[in-house]
């Protein structure tokens, strides 16, 4: 990994069209400004990893999916009866 030292207000240019600026520094927190073309998606890393992980969970094989759904319908049906 390339590591560069920057001060507040200084920038890094990546390729022709991506610019990263150190906007502010407060203690151990850094505010970063990013200029990039619209097609470049920018996300907080942990958020992106969360989405990847949950997509992987959601794509796991679901044993007896239709049975589970049918069961839940039946359950909610009987709940309504109890309410009355």
């Amino acid at each position: 990994m390339l590591i560069l030292s920057r001060k507040k207000g200084e920038s890094i240019q990546i390729g022709d069209d991506i610019e990263i600026t150190i906007a502010a520094i407060h203690g151990d927190q850094v505010k970063i400004g990013i200029n990039a073309p619209k097609h470049v998606e920018i996300h907080r890393k942990e958020v992106y990893l969360d989405i990847q992980e949950e997509n992987a969970n959601a794509a796991k094989n679901i044993e007896g999916l239709l049975h589970l759904l049918a069961q839940s319908k039946k359950d909610s049906g009987s709940e309504k009866k109890n309410d009355g």
Partner: peptide, 30 residues
């Protein structure tokens, strides 16, 4: 994310699927 029992199923509201009916282009928006 379907779970057993189904009542414990969760929904990913942070990354909805956005789908354009006009041209069938779609993406998962974060």
């Amino acid at each position: 994310t379907v779970r057993d029992p189904f009542s414990e199923t969760t929904a990913n509201l942070q990354a909805p699927l956005i789908m354009n009916e006009k041209n069938h282009k779609a993406k998962q928006l974060i």
